[in-house]
Deep mutational scan, measured.
Amino acid sequence: NKEHILAQKEVLTPIEYEHYVKHLFDIGEITKELYIELSS
Rank of each mutant, 00 (worst) to 15 (best):
Leu34Gln: 08
Glu16Gly: 06
Glu16Pro: 02
Glu16Leu: 08
Asn1Asp: 14
Tyr20Phe: 07
Lys9Gly: 07
Lys22Gly: 08
Lys9Phe: 11
Glu16Tyr: 04
Leu12Tyr: 08
His4Tyr: 14
Glu16Asp: 14
Leu24Glu: 02
Ile36Gly: 12
Ile30Asn: 00
Tyr20His: 03
Leu6His: 07
Ile36Met: 15
Glu18Asn: 11
Thr13Lys: 09
His4Asp: 15
Tyr20Gln: 01
Asp26Ala: 14
His23Gly: 02
Phe25Ile: 02
Glu33Tyr: 10
Leu38Arg: 00
His19Glu: 07
His23Ile: 02
His19Gly: 13
Pro14Met: 06
Ile30Gly: 00
Gln8Leu: 09
Ile5Gly: 01
Leu6Ala: 06
Lys22Arg: 14
Tyr35Asp: 00
Ile27Val: 15
Tyr35Phe: 14
His4Met: 14
Asp26Gly: 05
Tyr35Ser: 02
His19Asn: 15
Val11Cys: 05
Tyr20Lys: 02
Glu18Ala: 13
Glu33Phe: 09
Glu33Val: 07
Leu24Trp: 04
Ile5Phe: 10
Ile27Ser: 10
Leu12Trp: 03
Asp26Asn: 06
Lys32Gly: 14
Lys2Ile: 13
Tyr17Met: 03
Tyr17Asn: 01
Ile27Leu: 12
Val11Asn: 10
Thr31Met: 06
His4Trp: 06
Leu24Phe: 05
His4Arg: 05
His23Val: 02
Asn1His: 09
Lys2Arg: 07
Ser39Lys: 12
Glu37Pro: 00
Glu29Arg: 07
Glu18Ser: 09
Leu38Asn: 01
Tyr35Gly: 01
Thr13Gln: 09
Phe25Thr: 02
Glu3Met: 13
Phe25Lys: 03
Ile15Trp: 12
Ile15Gly: 15
Val21Ala: 02
Lys22Phe: 12
His4Val: 10
Ser40Lys: 05
Lys32Met: 13
Ser39Glu: 08
Tyr35Arg: 01
Val11Arg: 05
Glu3Tyr: 09
Gly28Val: 01
Leu6Glu: 12
Glu18Lys: 12
Lys2Pro: 11
His23Ser: 11
Tyr17Glu: 00
Tyr17Gln: 01
Tyr20Arg: 01
Tyr20Pro: 00
Glu3His: 09
Asn1Leu: 08
Ile30Thr: 01
Val11Phe: 15
Lys2Gly: 03
Glu37Val: 09
Ile5Tyr: 11
Lys9Trp: 10
Glu29Trp: 13
Glu33Leu: 09
Ile36Thr: 11
Glu3Arg: 02
Pro14Tyr: 12
His19Ser: 15
Ile15Gln: 10
Ile30Arg: 00
Ile15His: 15
Lys22Tyr: 07
Thr31Ile: 04
Leu6Cys: 09
Glu18Met: 13
Tyr17His: 04
Lys2Asp: 05
Ile36Ala: 15
His23Phe: 12
Asn1Tyr: 09
Ser40Asn: 06
Ile15Thr: 10
Glu16Trp: 04
Glu33Ala: 12
Ser39Asn: 15
Glu29Thr: 14
Phe25Tyr: 11
Glu3Ile: 08
Ile15Glu: 10
Ile30Gln: 00
Glu10Lys: 06
Ser39Pro: 00
Pro14Asn: 15
Gly28Asp: 05
Glu29Gln: 15
Asn1Met: 11
Val21Tyr: 03
Glu16His: 04
Val21Asp: 00
Glu18Phe: 08
Glu10Met: 06
His4Pro: 06
Pro14Trp: 10
Ser39His: 03
Glu10Ala: 08
Thr13Trp: 06
Ala7Asn: 09
Tyr17Trp: 04
Val11Ile: 14
Phe25Glu: 01
Lys9Val: 08
Val21His: 01
Gln8Trp: 12
Ile27Met: 15
Val11Glu: 11
Leu24Thr: 02
Gly28Gln: 07
Thr31Asn: 07
Ile5Trp: 09
Thr13Val: 06
Lys22Ile: 07
Gly28Arg: 05
Lys22Leu: 10
Tyr20Thr: 02
Ser40Val: 02
Phe25Pro: 00
His19Ile: 15
Phe25His: 05
Asp26Leu: 05
Leu6Asp: 03
Pro14Ile: 15
Glu37Met: 06
Leu38Ser: 01
Leu12Asp: 01
Glu10Ser: 06
Ile30Tyr: 00
Leu6Arg: 03
Asn1Lys: 09
Glu29Asn: 12
Leu34Trp: 10
Ala7Arg: 05
Val21Lys: 02
Leu34Ala: 10
Asp26Arg: 06
Glu33Ile: 05
Leu6Tyr: 08
Gln8Ile: 13
Lys22Ser: 12
Lys9Ser: 07
Ser39Ala: 10
Thr13Asn: 05
Lys22Ala: 13
Tyr35His: 03
Val11Ala: 15
Thr13Gly: 09
Val21Asn: 01
Glu10Gly: 07
Val11Gln: 12
Val11Asp: 08
Asn1Gly: 03
Leu6Asn: 06
Ile36Asp: 07
Glu37Asn: 03
Leu34Phe: 08
Asn1Pro: 05
Ile30His: 00
Ile36Val: 13
His4Ile: 04
Val21Trp: 02
Glu18Pro: 01
Ile27Arg: 15
Val11Trp: 15
Lys22His: 13
Lys32Glu: 13
Lys22Pro: 00
Ala7Met: 10
Glu3Leu: 06
Glu16Thr: 04
Pro14Phe: 11
Ile5His: 08
Val11His: 11
Lys32Pro: 10
Leu6Ile: 07
Glu29Phe: 14
Tyr20Gly: 01
Leu38Thr: 03
Val21Pro: 00
Ile15Pro: 11
Lys32Phe: 15
Asp26Tyr: 13
Ile36Asn: 11
His4Gly: 11
Asp26Met: 07
Ser40Ile: 14
Ile15Met: 11
Lys2Ser: 11
Glu10Arg: 04
Leu24Tyr: 03
Ile30Met: 06
Ala7His: 08
Glu10Gln: 12
